[in-house]
Nucleic acid binder design. Sequence first.
RNA 1: GGCCCCAUCGUCUAGUGGUUAGGACACCAGGUUUUCAACCUGUAAGCGGGGGUUCAAUUCCCCCUGGGGCUGCCA
Length: 473
Amino acid sequence: MIRLRFAPSPTGNLHIGSARTALFNYLYAKFLKGKFILRIEDTDILRSKKEYEEDIISGLKWLGINWDEGPGVDSVQSYYQLDRWKQGIYNQYCQQLIEEGKAYYCFCEQEEKDKDPLQLSYKYSGKCRTLSNEQIKENIAKKIPYAIRFKVCEEVVVFRDLVRGDISFDMALNGDLVIMRSDGMPTYNFAVVVDDMDMQITHVIRGEDHISNTPKQIQIFNALGKTPPAYGHISMILGPDKAKLSKRHGAKSITEFKNEGYLPEALFNFLALLGWSHPEDKEVIFQEDLMTVYDMARVSKSNSVFNIEKLNWLNGQYLRSYTAEHIYNISSEFLDGFNKSLYNKDQLIYILDVIKENLNLLSDIPTQLAVFFTTQVIYEKEHVQLEMIPMIEKFEQGLRDLEFTSEVISEYTNNFVKENNIKKGQIFHNVRYAVSAQQKGPSLFKMLQVFGKEKVCQRIGNYIAYVKTCSGS
RNA sequence: GGCCCCAUCGUCUAGUGGUUAGGACACCAGGUUUUCAACCUGUAAGCGGGGGUUCAAUUCCCCCUGGGGCUGCCA
């Protein structure tokens, strides 16, 4: 059975980098027809917060990344490390290692390494490795705080990375590592191993920043008598300055993308393309299709810069492919600011259909919509064309007898232009300005239809009056 | 400092010894359009440097350079 997992620590919101890691695991699990598991690594009690956990969970759900096992899914076991710690799981395995002589009590004080920046290569001496049972008992009796260290084997560890091939580390360069802190909590490297082992994880896809943790985890797996999973390390996402995208470097949370009007499908698609490519170079790919082709063999090794322009384009592709009704259904928060009594639902959907082509983000809606809701049009002298006034007056008169649909108005306008021998653009421009005081905007006839005859004629009248006042006649 | 990873247009990438080095975003030009956008067409733009191996290197090896990561009783 194939089992992959995403194991975030709730010490921050779900940001673009960890969302991508989750997505790669999810997609690869689906590609292999396996299970995808969500596990919360909350052993850092100081920095973990419930609100972050909620943000991560809701962010994943919003993106459409669903887990087969994990929080919110019925199960006998917990997928929170804190719970598992309370059940004594880590302690049990730790005890096993101590008994087998593979781990030991360490009474050394916590190292302070930040004094001398040049002396960075620090390695624990292994001082407590050789403590006798008596000394250990004595120290415990004296209530000297202790941690448990894992005896690192001084060997070369080689593993075959799913995306990079063979990677080797000389473990003689590492000191023994702490697996249980003096406060009784397991450290990351120990807890992941225990959990991945217990949960029978077969493949671990994670960020490149974990490469150097891998040999340590492999040794712990071996010490526990289990085979480690396959590891695949994906590249990092970089900011426009090519620095690692982190919270302080403008790594936006998924919630922010949502609030800014991005569609989950588009973000999902975009993230899948960041460090992976479709065998046929496709760019717009739906989730269901991704699941059938998402092979790790097509994951690229180098870091990638986050390119917001492409995300915007992709978002527009998705948005424009939707019906106006669907857009209406998903954009309520961007519609909230508008006076609902002005139009009914059907009219609003019609308006959305009119402005749809101008949309990249859901958040573009308010700007595009504004012209339909303004009650006051304020003209400016410099945009006025006095010489066109007689023509506009005539145009407006003809409008009064029309059935007020965009098709009819369009036909009328075409004939009007022909009969009066004027340029199309002139009439369009002036009418647009008269009814909206804007130089540009949505398709004119559709806009007129939405406004309705009464409002259109009234505004044109106002405009004519304004121009006449301006000209001082 | 030590260890590890990486290196194709501005950006995301295809490419696994012989290609006119392909696509996408952005850009620029043209078309279409009442405007803006969208859309269509086209242009421009790239293998970091130096050594090898080979009849032949973007592709394989080494060095340099550059970028990134790790070097915690954080994850």
